[in-house]
Computed example of a mutant assay.
Amino acid sequence: MAEITELIGLARDGDQVASERVFALLYDELHRLAAGQLRGEQAMRATSLVHEAYLKIAHHGALAVNDRGHFFAVAARVMRQIVIDHVRSRSALRRGGDLHFAPLETTAMQAASQDRDEEVLALDAALERLAELDAPLAALVEMRFYAGLELSEIATVQERSERSLKRDWRRARAFLQREIAGV
């Protein structure tokens, strides 16, 4: 982990080789997260998601993250943006449809791959409102729903207890479900 943190520091300062090395070292973990998002979908789609996320993260030639935890938080946000962009572009081609929002026990790519675009867009709008009120709760949802991280993994990355994250996860889900239901 110290090597990754050191490489991230070099990449943040514009070292392209260090940026590529960070990606290489974290590739398998990112691919696992993307594959978890797709659950049973084609492996090439997971690879595409990882590569597109990396390109967005390292777009300006410098990896603008502080450490491994921050890297995965940024990766979760970028994966969210990729999924939402994909769903929006697909939704622009069609209109209508019933909205039956499923619980947040799935991942964003699963929902998108099942043509539940309206659900993904409704969740994104609710997540924007949550971010305005409580940014850490919104970040937790991004890491769970968009990056597919388990609470135990998030606890390690954020150096928080899994118990407090479970409590936050329940609060975030309740807020999002109320927002989506329009209560």
Rank of each mutant, 00 (worst) to 15 (best):
G61M: 12
D124C: 02
S91V: 12
A62D: 15
L10T: 04
E150A: 13
D117P: 03
G9V: 04
V183K: 13
A112D: 00
A64T: 05
R12F: 06
L30W: 00
V74N: 08
S113D: 05
S19T: 07
V141N: 00
R95S: 15
S152Y: 13
Q110M: 08
Q158P: 01
L33W: 02
I82R: 01
A147S: 10
L137N: 01
E29F: 05
L123W: 04
Q114R: 15
E41K: 08
A126I: 04
V141K: 01
Q177P: 00
N66A: 14
R171S: 07
L55Q: 12
A46H: 06
H59T: 13
E6H: 14
R32H: 08
M79P: 01
E159A: 15
V87F: 00
L151P: 03
E132C: 10
P103L: 11
L130N: 06
S89R: 14
Q42P: 03
E6V: 06
A155T: 06
A139E: 15
M1F: 14
I82D: 00
E150H: 14
R94L: 11
T107S: 03
N66H: 12
R88C: 06
A147L: 07
E159M: 10
R90W: 07
N66F: 13
Y27T: 06
S48Q: 10
R32L: 04
R90C: 08
R77C: 02
A139H: 10
A75W: 00
Q37E: 02
A73C: 07
G36S: 09
L127G: 01
A102G: 02
V157N: 08
V157G: 05
E119D: 12
E159D: 12
I154Y: 05
L151T: 09
E153V: 03
A64L: 13
V183H: 08
L165M: 04
I82W: 01
M44H: 11
D67F: 11
E119W: 01
S164W: 11
I4A: 12
R32C: 02
V74I: 01
I4V: 14
M1Q: 14
A135G: 07
P103R: 15
Y27W: 11
E3Y: 06
G9M: 08
R171A: 12
A108C: 01
L25E: 11
A126S: 06
R171G: 01
A24M: 13
E132H: 14
G97P: 10
V22D: 01
K56Y: 05
L25F: 04
F145I: 05
S91R: 12
S91N: 10
W169C: 04
R21M: 04
M109F: 08
L99R: 09
A174T: 09
H100N: 13
L49K: 05
F101V: 15
Q110W: 05
A73T: 13
L140V: 03
F145N: 10
E52L: 12
E162M: 11
E29W: 05
L133V: 14
A64G: 10
H60L: 13
R12S: 08
A2V: 12
A125T: 11
L165Y: 03
S152A: 14
A11K: 00
L25C: 06
W169K: 12
E179N: 01
Y54H: 14
R160D: 10
D67Y: 06
Q37H: 06
A76D: 02
S48Y: 07
M109P: 01
L151K: 09
A138Y: 02
G61W: 05
I57C: 04
Q177V: 05
